[in-house]
Design a protein around this nucleic acid. Sequence first.
RNA 1: GGGAAAGUGGCGGAAUUGGUAGACGCGCAGGUCUCAGAAGCCUGUUACUUCACUGUAGUGGGGGUUCGAUUCCCCCCUUUCCCACCA
Length: 851
Amino acid sequence: MPYEPKLIEEKWQHAWADAKVAEVDVNAPGEKFYMLNMFPYPSGDLHVGHGRNYILGDALYRYFRMQGKAALNPMGWDAFGLPAENAAIKRGIHPRQWTVSNIEREKKQFLRWGILYDWSKELASCDPGYYRWNQWLFLKLYERGLAYRAKAPVNWCPSDQTVLANEQVVDGRCERCSTVVVQRDLEQWFLKITDYADRLDAGLDTLEHWPEKVKLMQRNWIGRSVGADVEFTVDALGKAIRIFTTRPDTIFGATFMVLAPEHPDVVTLLTDHPDRAEIEQWIAGVRNQSNLERQEAGKEGRFTGKTATNPFTNEPIPIWLGNFVLMQYGTGAIMAVPGHDQRDFEFAKQYDLPIRIVVRSSYADAPSAADLTEAFAVKDESAVAVDSGLISELPTPQAIDRIIEEIERLGIGKKMVRYRLRDWLISRQRYWGTPIPMIYCERDGIVPVPESQLPVELPLDVPFTGREGNPLAKDERFVNTTCPRCGGAARRETDTMDTFVDSSWYYARFISAHDDTRIVDTALANRWLPVDQYIGGIEHAILHLLYARFICRTLYDMGLVSFEEPFTRLFNQGMITKEGYRDAEVGTWVAIADVKWVDGNPVHKDTGKALLAETSKMSKSHFNVVPPDELIDRYGADTERVYTLFIAPPEKEAAWSDDGVVGAYRFLGRVWHMGEQILAMSGGGVGRGAVVTRKTHQTIEAVTRRFDRFEFNTAISGLMELSNAIGEALSSGDVDAATLRDSYTTLLKLLHPFAPHITEELWMMLGNEGFILTSPWPKADPALMVEDVVTIVVQVNGKLRGQVEVPNPPEKDVVLAAVRANEKVRQWIAGKELVKEVYVPGKLVNIVVKG
RNA sequence: GGGAAAGUGGCGGAAUUGGUAGACGCGCAGGUCUCAGAAGCCUGUUACUUCACUGUAGUGGGGGUUCGAUUCCCCCCUUUCCCACCA
């Protein structure tokens, strides 16, 4: 019988589902292992690149299962979001309907891949039973002062009269109507993640099993820096301006001050300036620029005409406005030390401001300020302060400590830790999201919706035009309500929550997905959480994972869970890319159907124009998406699974090759035919049994180790080697049936996580009871892995010159005697002076000769 | 501008601690089967040299440590990713 995946895959998919093999009773005993793939946004089109993520998770799940763990592998849907609303606007389908039908499609796809999830715990963030707890969480955060309202700019399309998400702004214009987008200040809701900046930063040190790369990205995003706030008196204001610096030791070299153009004191400073109108115009221009535009514009500034007093030199220093000083960081004002900060240096050169040297390398004299071509910004022990009063000649680290002491003693400032991290803006002027449970009353102001009134449900019958703002705001039945406090007429908040709120705690909800009385069941959560293995794309390295870590800490502070870090181990799989073809001149992508090959080069079928082959992320617009359906119809899901994990190390980007798939299919075909032969076989010789058994046990050891290290590609190559070894033994006829059958059964078990259907079928064909999935993972017997003879490599002056075989374990005297007796080695060293013999136990002998 | 990762055959990639570089697979070549093709199976496949045995070179480039370096150290080049005027 030929290997026909079609005939067996669906059968086993139903068998596993019917037996509910993946359903976990959370109260049952056993060693828990919580696996989790990041829940997907149901866009409806899963391609083989998405498949990599879930197939990898499923292989691990099956492995842990066979290792005897009580493994939990749930799945849900990150179901709120903009694309659903766009579909409603463009195609007139309700976001809910669009989302639900996509979920159905994706669920079928998971099934076809042979992926086992515990569907009894399924959740969708657009379900009121889920998002009511988003609202509950928001109310708790509000109670604790962690949710607040403030003005913040949004992208506003003046033509469509609506707020745009960043993704909807293309080159500064509205994605839909190409109108130039403007910034508009709106009152919006924030979560105070900055209160947790220090804990989020410190917690990174405890995450031993997270990729260093992700931790570093988070650390940079939080951006902790230690320095000092210092006040500089400004006579014109009759008060001081506060600056933040990480280099208070350079304060003797602060020769001017720079304020952000948005700094609140700017208006007062400019009141009597002769060129006030011009400067205000300049400020308005800078304010309208994005950060990127500001940077491209180069360093620009204006002199306010006023001075501040440097508290250490007591000199008046000019106060400038500068486009490179950001209002959002620190105090929006800096002391400029052009000798020791590159930005300040460039600004000083631009406007011819004085430069003073107050730090030098401890290996060299200080250069003269006039000779300086760039700022000297070294700040370790190898730098010392000069011309700096009380800290002169102190190495920089000590100078910093000493000057901060002095600043604090003088009462003009203090040591300060600041973060780059900003508060989390969660308001979205969108329909398809969790309504923020707040009410505005003329009399009582902002009033939270009482818990008993949750969920605040999203009305379903609203019109979608894509114009004139949020559809929710136009639904009078939703907006008009009564004040929970005074009972008078009031209006509801119509902003919905950022979908990152939904995904910041969903992992905890799976454990008690249907509990209508509380957000999490604390006792069960503490048993099953944190997640033991979290799997997802690197694109979530910063926002999702940081928000999840933040919300987890707030749950911890409320006493709802007993842990602060939600994910013990994190794995980021790489993307799958594929070659696409584009017109080199115009730059547009060409559909595969329009590509013709001439002498191995792609050209356009109609125009004959040469095309450029380019490998990129799969996307419809690049015509390089590989849909799993055709692939599975032709080769089966097992082939896709094996190929996907074999193609490259899982954390790396991998290029899809249609040809390569065939290799995986052939491999499975060979395993299949071997199974039929072994089933029919009896008798056989005994000559090579030990060789096959040894290879089998070596493979058990290797595959197990590689699973633990996520080295799926080499685990599969190891299984191919074992299969080749069994195949050779089979055709040699020199191995007995029982030995071959044992090795083959082991191969099936080791292969099961990668190719579940075919192995399950063969397991049954060989007459075994139950599922191979629930059979135990094989154990390697070290005694059976040991070789009878050892091959010792012989080198002369480090070059391979022969090999000798000695009985295992190899003894030094025996090995050296064998080497000396080796004819070829004797030729190589003949007539030369022996310098030494190096013996690496069990591996090699290197003979060093001279002449 | 700052930070991180990585450079190995025609291609994807392999090489526990420094110890036979190129496992495994694709592709390619030859063979087998076939009226023919597809699929399968067998053999070969780093380059140069040789009919062959063999030999020489070889893991981005240059240097170092070592009996021995893809692996460790220093310098340089290239690519990719992330953050981007964060004081």
